[in-house]
Design a protein around this nucleic acid. Structure first.
Length: 637
RNA sequence: GCCCAGAUAGCUCAGUUGGCAGAGCACAUCCUUGGUAAGGAUGAGGUCGCCGGUUCAAAUCCGGUUCUGGGCUCCA
């Protein structure tokens, strides 16, 4: 059953189809459902739709609305339905859609004017009910969402019960555009992406680097409190490392091509090795490694066809697509006792993944990014406690940033599938631990069977920003697989080797995505502790330039980020500049202030706050920074 | 990767049927020395994304390519 709004939008999509068929009678229709924000219709049409076509179609839709056609439902048999579809020349997609309807379910059509569509309904009574609508864009969309199928043209639009609501929605879209991190990133000089450096590779400019550094400092402080050790590891690792972990060639598609050693490359070229052969050899492993992995995992994890003689193997390195193998090697670098556990290794680790070019987006979807990563090595019994620790960290940081609106998804195994590694009892324990941990947060959480990784259950964080958009950021994952593949052990109280459990966690995902979300969350109005420039000193005239410079030195000495506006402009223009650059505090310095060693405070949050001695202002802002207070933030619109 | 649309000064954009490259903001210099969101004048700044083609002549037309945007697919 549709909500009234969905009904309205669904009806709008039928009106869209009606209009399209009037203009392009040979259009073949697929489906046209309502969405969260509007509706679309997928259409197969040789003519490439243009923006002008969109205007024409919209005008025709208005006519259909004015014609005030009733939406009429009729129920028919399966054979009759097929006949209707064929008689209208719509068999290309509609017959397939008809076949999707389960046996025994009612088959219905909805008719308005000359248009009739296979449709479960429901609809508004008359086309005239759809008063406030707008077509928004044309996009390509694969039939049934499968990239192997033909790509259809999708027309997106939206509809609301009233024109006011439509106008409000369009206004909201406009505002969202204003706070887009790509726009703010450029305006506030936070980051750039350069064509010559590469797509999806972020260059953090000085201002953005300050924000990232402050966040990292903050996270690091919390990690130290929680007993983490910070480590550094290189950006590359040998191909074999990822063959042991199983990431290569399994995730080869989403990794940068391996860096092949010069000697290896020269030898292969000398042999006149074909491309196909080269690919096989890249994937291949030595018989020694295959035997090891198969022994450890207790099954034929590496099949004999992947094994090649040593002289055919290709030596090379990979840009690391994840940090775990490196951290595992740190764990494995010395004997571990149960008394040492948990070992918590944290790193702001930069990883590289080959995202498809069409899905790159600003800072939120990139090819090189730095995870706030950590790997916890613990005993079975410690898993639950460690999960709690991970979640409390998330809670502290999100609360500090004023992002307390979030939910978690607990990914559990699919009870019917056999793809999971590890023992059932461990899974049961780990899943229950995830469930319990999520419960302690006091935020909504959903259990999703089948969403677990093959090596363990996980907890995902979905964060809602101030304008209601949701962002999937980090995850916490329990892993039984890698400790086996790397043969990790610790000595237990019984003096026997035991297998540790690993927890992977990157609660904020990556610094890039997190900062991107943060930019939009704050609309660039960062709290004082995160602001690249915390104080702008504005001399009323050149006469107080010296006083301004004196205060600048004192602020810098005190660790406050500040600058003097030395432009030859009037006060109003300097205030405006500070306002546009979103500096939280502007100190206006005229003759009176210089005389009294005071400052006239204008804050981003409250405007003109009056005059105060500088010696009083300094501790005030220092305290605000120290507390990582949100109070300096402009109240969100 | 696929579909569609773009790319002109640091930014936002104009540029007609192919005929000398434009505006506003920002920037620099000078005048002005000021009291809470734009004082005035002058100036500098461009191989019109890149490569090739058509043409007497290309920002403009054609082909290719790179990047960007909106979607689709994907996201360990």
């Amino acid at each position: 059953m549709m909500t009234p709004l969905e009904e309205l939008r669904h009806s709008a999509s039928h009106i869209l189809a009606t209009a399209v068929l009037r203009i392009f009678p040979d259009a073949k229709l697929d489906i046209g459902p309502p969405t969260d924000t509007g509706f679309y219709y997928d259409i197969d049409l040789d003519h490439k739709l243009t923006a002008e076509d969109l205007a024409r179609i919209e005008a025709e839709m208005k006519k259909v609305v004015d014609e005030n056609q009733p939406f009429l439902r009729s129920e028919v048999s399966r054979d009759e339905a097929a006949e209707i579809v064929k008689s209208r020349g719509q068999e290309r997609y509609k017959l397939g859609r008809l076949a999707d309807i389960p046996e025994g379910e009612k088959i219905s059509f909805y008719k308005n004017g000359e248009f009739m569509d296979l449709c479960a309904g429901t609809h508004v009574r008359y086309t005239s009910k759809v008063k406030a609508f707008k077509l928004l864009s044309i996009a390509g969309a694969y039939h049934r969402g499968d990239e192997k199928n033909k790509q259809l043209q999708r027309i997106y639009g939206t509809a609301f019960p009233s024109r006011d609501e439509l106008a409000k929605y369009l206004e909201q879209m406009e505002q969202a555009k204003q706070r887009d991190h790509r726009k703010l990133g450029r305006d506030l000089k936070l980051f750039v992406i350069d064509e010559d450096v590469g797509q999806g590779l972020i260059l953090w400019t000085p201002n953005g680097s300050i924000i990232r550094q402050e966040l990292q400092n903050f996270i690091s402080e919390e990690l130290r409190k929680q007993g983490y050790s910070q480590v550094f590891t290189p950006h590359i690792g040998k191909l074999e490392l990822y063959k042991i972990s199983g990431h290569f060639p399994y995730y080869k598609e989403s990794q940068f091509t391996p860096v092949v050693e010069n000697e290896s490359l020269a030898r292969i070229l000398g042999e006149g090795c074909s491309c196909a052969e080269m690919v096989v050899r890249l994937d291949a492993v030595s018989s020694r490694l295959a035997a090891q992995i198969n022994e450890r995992t207790g099954r034929e994890t590496i099949t004999p066809d992947r094994v090649r003689p040593d002289d055919q193997l290709i030596e090379g390195f990979m840009l690391k697509p994840m940090n775990c193998p490196h951290h595992i090697k740190i764990y494995a670098s010395q004997p571990r006792s149960y008394r040492d556990l948990p070992v918590r290794l944290a790193e702001f680790g930069t990883v590289y993944r080959w995202e498809q070019s069409g899905e790159l987006n600003g800072m939120t979807r990139v090819r090189g990014f730095t995870q706030d990563d950590a790997h916890l090595f613990c005993t079975e019994d410690q898993v639950a406690q460690e999960l709690l620790g991970c979640l409390s960290l998330v809670k502290i940081i999100l609360t500090t940033l004023g992002m307390s609106d979030y939910r978690v998804r607990v990914g559990l195994r699919d009870p019917d599938s056999k793809k999971y590694t590890g023992q059932k009892e461990n899974w049961d324990k780990a899943e229950e631990a995830c469930r319990q941990a999520a419960r302690t947060l006091g935020v909504p959480f959903a259990e999703e069977p089948g969403e677990a990784a093959f090596y363990g259950p996980k907890i995902d964080f979905v964060i809602k920003d101030v304008i209601g958009r949701e962002w999937q950021l980090g995850t916490v994952q329990v892993d039984y697989n890698l400790p086996i593949r790397f043969d990790l052990t610790y000595s237990g109280a019984d003096n026997q080797p035991h297998r540790p459990v690993m927890i992977h966690r990157a609660p904020f995902g990556s610094m890039e995505r997190f900062c991107g979300v943060l930019i939009e969350h704050f609309a660039g109005d960062f709290p004082v502790w995160l602001s690249p420039e915390q104080v702008r000193l504005v001399p009323v005239s050149e006469k107080t330039l010296d006083y301004s410079r004196e205060l600048l030195a004192r602020l810098r000495e005190a660790g406050v980020r500040a600058s003097v506006d030395e432009h030859n402009d009037k006060l109003g223009a300097k205030i405006r500049r500070a306002e546009i650059e979103k500096v939280p505090y502007t100190l206006v310095l005229g003759g009176k202030e210089a005389e009294a060693k005071s400052v006239s405070i204008r804050s981003r949050a409250k405007g003109d706050e009056g005059v105060m001695p500088f010696d009083q202002f300094l501790p005030r802002i220092q305290e605000e920074i120290r507390l990582r207070s949100l109070s300096g933030k402009k109240t969100p619109a």
